[in-house]
């Protein structure tokens, strides 16, 4: 228990400029509370997130990764979020093969008006990652090599 409360997960969220990023902004505007564990990377579309970026995030010690795109049917580029969803699902399979719990990677869909949902999602995901504990990669990275 003590251990769990000490662990602050490092989470990376790839947020689409048109929805999740705007939702995060909105959450900030009305001061919704959500954990500070999440580093947001703004992308022009969730479909722009290269699977290699996600692999690199894990390799460099991320405890969890969120890919946040628009609601299905609402993608600014029509199908970017659907492609992201399929890529995330393949990556989850690869993570399992590597020996990293696939629950550490999640795709979520939001609209720019969903500030509270963004805050809730991030809170809930952070808790889930906290439960899972530190990434086994971080645990095994030789000292001084964690980027």
């Amino acid at each position: 228990m003590h251990h769990t409360s000490e662990f602050e997960p490092q989470i990376l969220a790839f947020c689409c400029h048109y929805c999740a990023y705007a939702a995060a902004d909105l959450a900030g505007t009305f001061r919704a509370q959500y954990p500070t564990n999440v580093r947001i990377i703004r992308v022009p579309c969730s479909g722009k997130v290269d699977p290699m970026h996600i692999m690199q995030a894990f390799e460099h010690g991320a405890d969890g990764v969120l890919v946040a795109g628009c609601l299905e049917g609402g993608c600014h580029f029509l199908e970017g979020n659907l492609r992201a969803k399929r890529r995330v699902s393949l990556l989850r399979q690869i993570l399992d093969e590597i020996g990293i719990k696939s629950d550490r990677l999640r795709m979520v869909n939001l609209s720019s008006a969903m500030g509270q949902t963004f805050a809730n999602t991030v809170t809930e995901f952070t808790e889930q990652i906290r439960e899972l504990g530190p990434s086994p990669i971080t645990n095994n990275i030789p000292r001084g090599k964690l980027r």
């Binding site: 290269d50 699977p51 290699m52 692999m55 690199q56 894990f58 390799e59 690869i94 093969e97 590597i98 020996g99 990293i100 086994p136 990669i137 095994n140 990275i141």
Partner: peptide, 16 residues
């Protein structure tokens, strides 16, 4: 791309 992904996956898998 696949070579990059596989190299990364194998590095992580060995590290575990």
């Amino acid at each position: 791309r696949e070579a990059g992904m596989m190299a990364s996956a194998l590095r992580m898998a060995s590290r575990l």
